[in-house]
């Protein structure tokens, strides 16, 4: 944006308003570079070094090439490649929570925005479903731990009613521990997703719904032919942010299983694994290699989801533009 102003002596002075734009976005980029970009490169750099602590003595940093990566992908004593197991754990637990999260959030978003239902007390319901997100994840997890522990009320009630055996431990069973973690993530996040999806739906022109109804479309058709395609950009955004959050899952399983990822590491997530290298040995090398792996996983999954889900939408947008041009 340049504008020329003629000075009194007749010369031209150009005034650029673009600089204000740069100034306003500069703080973000500065913060991003200092606190995200540089650390990212440092992580990559660190992953090539042997660098840890033995007691209060520092070992390294010594350059070891790709040794940390080799170590990361070599099987443990039981023949399991742990990093892959933990990746799978993370994805399973995320999916267990994310599928109901998106289905329920979508349903609620449609109910709340429907001009036919006109649900009363929306503000109240929206606040209530958002509430679990306001609690600190660790506190929420502690609450569940107390409820489902061997000495907790739920365990007690279920034993009293003969539903489970007295020796049944929710945290030693793969299915229950993973389900509990997924349930917590679901409870914490479905409200948030509902709000974002609602905003997305409200951004769609109401007349489209009306005309579809007049044309005889039933609610299901309206949803699949009108609402969902137009909601796609917001939906993809929600899905990708939820996925990134899911891959970084840490506090809920950490607190629930006291950092053990019991049973047999089947509820241990990637970030919990990362944390175990940051115990007393402060192993920057291994933690760096693992972080790079998590970055690659997140990046490629994000890219894949984005490509798959937004490709049809992009096509239709292009077609839409072309048709407009035809008319002219």
């Amino acid at each position: 944006m340049e504008k020329q102003i003629r000075r009194k002596d007749g010369s031209l002075k150009s005034v650029s308003y673009a600089k204000w734009g740069f100034i306003f976005i500069a703080p973000f980029f500065l913060v991003y570079i200092v606190f995200t970009l540089i650390p990212q490169f440092l992580t990559l750099y660190n992953s090539f070094f042997e660098n840890y602590r033995d007691g209060l003595k520092q070992i390294g940093p010594n350059f070891v090439g790709l040794d940390n990566y080799k170590e990361l992908f070599s099987p443990d004593g039981n023949g399991t490649i742990l990093v892959l197991r933990y990746t799978l754990n993370t994805l399973i637990m995320w999916l267990l929570g994310a599928i109901p999260q998106f289905v329920i959030a979508m349903l609620l978003a449609i109910f709340f925005t429907s001009y036919r239902l006109k649900i009363k007390g929306q503000g109240f319901f929206k606040s209530v479903i958002y509430m679990p997100n306001l609690i600190m994840a660790a506190a929420f997890s502690m609450l569940f731990f107390t409820l489902f522990d061997m000495t907790g009320p739920i365990h007690y009630v279920l034993v009293e009613n003969g539903i489970i055996d007295a020796s049944f431990d929710f945290f030693s069973n793969r299915v229950t521990v993973r389900s509990l973690i997924a349930l917590m993530n679901f409870l914490m996040w479905f409200g948030n997703t509902t709000i974002v999806l609602m905003a997305g739906i409200m951004g769609i022109d109401q007349s489209l719904f009306e005309s579809a109804t007049i044309d005889g479309a039933n609610p299901v058709q309206v949803f699949f032919r009108v609402t969902f395609p137009l909601l796609m950009p917001i939906f993809v955004y929600c899905l990708i942010t939820a996925m990134i959050g899911g891959i970084q899952m840490y506090d809920v399983p950490q607190v629930l299983t006291k950092g053990n990822g019991s049973p047999n590491g089947l509820s241990k997530t990637l970030v919990m694994y990362l944390n175990s290298y940051f115990g007393p040995s402060k192993n920057y090398g291994m933690a760096g290699a693992l972080s790079v792996y998590i970055f690659v996983i997140t990046g490629s999954l994000g890219f894949f989801v984005y490509k798959r889900l937004s490709a049809p939408y992009k096509d239709s947008a292009r077609k839409h533009r072309r048709r407009k041009g035809d008319v002219i």
């Binding site: 070992i59 443990d76 039981n78 590491g265 115990g279 007393p280 040995s281 192993n283």
Partner: peptide, 24 residues
């Protein structure tokens, strides 16, 4: 003891834990 793994696996999990906790 809680029955989620056998003894051998438990011991190997312990070795893995040692490796992660103390690189030395």
């Amino acid at each position: 003891y809680k029955g989620s793994v056998d003894k051998e696996t438990a011991m190997k999990n312990f070795y893995q834990y040692v490796k992660e906790t103390y690189a030395t």
